[in-house]
Design a protein around this nucleic acid. Structure first.
Length: 301
RNA sequence: GGUGUCGUAGCUCAGUCGGUAGAGCAAUGGACUGAAAAUCCAUGUGUCACUGGUUCAAAUCCAGUCGACACCA
């Protein structure tokens, strides 16, 4: 048997039941959980991100939950580095470690790696955002055509974020983005098993509706109110908070805002599934199949 | 019980002079390398309540039935 330690990734669409499954697995395997949820990172975001509750935290040691402030800048490359730095010490004590969350890009960065690009600088990003606002997306397309015509053939030219990011890399490195994107998996000194949780669509959507209602009962509106002055922060461009801002602005009724949260959560779940479905390494289960998932983990180490 | 209005996509509704139908929302599929709960692309969904009649042709006109709503009793 391979002597490398094992990282078990538990993922799936929002509200499918990842937390409950992962707590049960962590207890059975006597191990810890790394969150791969790009919104649970933020200490201030609690109700709207469906963080594990106090009892669950006390049962299992969690990492990458609440370690950031919403004022902090963070990105997927930093997450990759932070996880890779932490993992060896965890593997010393636990032959299996769990990574749980629904942020597909972040999971891939840990499992496969991500190319070594420079972080964006606020100055350049604001400059390019200004061009987008003043001159439109066609100007960004023109610029990328100059800097990286090869990438123009592959990139989604209607997506401003893709154009903007590619331009940032071109302009800060002086080399075309497409030449620097290796798209190759990096070597890891641990093995990975990927568990995807899913439910029939109607059941998943029902769970989403129930969870949003629970969040409202738990005080999501009050939590959101305190963020009104901070709403421009990226961390608050998040389902749950952004819809309630429109209610607090008087644009829509509370009932309408809550419906919008449910709709946008459903769409988010669908996008997550699109991402995970194309991963051929993913082994799919329903969240009640904890025993089968545990068997798979044990059999693999 | 009577009178009136209405019944078209999952929902809200449009549909002109009769030529078998289309908007919005919802939904569905997809993309994705430092903003990713972000951002972007694509796509329909039909016993036109039912039964009959008129007509070359009915969502459309006529009759009846059923249902919803409003008003009257």
């Amino acid at each position: 048997m391979d002597s490398k330690p094992l990282l078990v990734v538990i993922t799936g669409p929002t509200a499918v039941g990842k937390t409950a499954v992962s707590i049960a697995l962590a207890k059975a395997l006597d191990t810890v959980i790394l969150s791969a949820d790009s919104r649970q990172f933020y200490a201030e975001l609690n109700i709207g991100t469906a963080k594990p509750d106090a009892a669950q935290f006390s049962e299992v040691q969690h990492y990458f939950v609440g370690q950031l402030s919403i004022h902090d800048y963070y990105n997927v490359a930093r997450y990759e580095a932070d996880v890779l730095q932490l993992l060896p010490s965890l593997f010393e004590k636990h032959p299996v470690v769990l990574m749980v969350g629904g942020s597909g890009l972040y999971i891939d960065a840990v499992c496969r790696g991500i190319d070594d690009f420079p972080d964006p600088t606020p100055e350049l990003r604001n400059y390019l955002k200004g061009i987008l606002a003043d001159e439109g997306i066609s100007k960004l397309q023109d610029l990328l055509q100059q800097h990286d015509p090869a990438h123009m053939l592959e990139v989604d030219i209607a997506n401003p974020k893709r154009l903007l990011r590619a331009l940032e890399v071109c302009m800060t490195t002086g080399k075309p983005y497409s030449e620097q994107r290796m798209n190759q998996s990096k070597a890891r000194d641990f093995r990975v098993v990927k568990i995807g949780l899913n439910l029939p669509r109607a059941e998943l959507f029902a769970r989403i509706g129930q969870r949003v209602d629970q969040m409202m009962v738990a005080g999501l509106l009050e939590e959101t109110k305190q963020f009104i002055p901070l709403r421009h922060l990226n961390a608050l461009n998040t389902v749950g908070y952004k819809e309630l801002f429109t209610y607090l602005d008087g644009e829509v009724s509370l009932e309408r805002a809550v419906e919008n949260i449910k709709t946008n959560t459903r769409r988010y779940a669908k996008r997550q599934l699109t991402w995970f479905k194309r991963d051929m390494e993913m082994k799919w289960f329903e969240p009640h199949q904890t025993a089968e998932i545990l068997d798979l983990c044990i059999q693999d180490y």
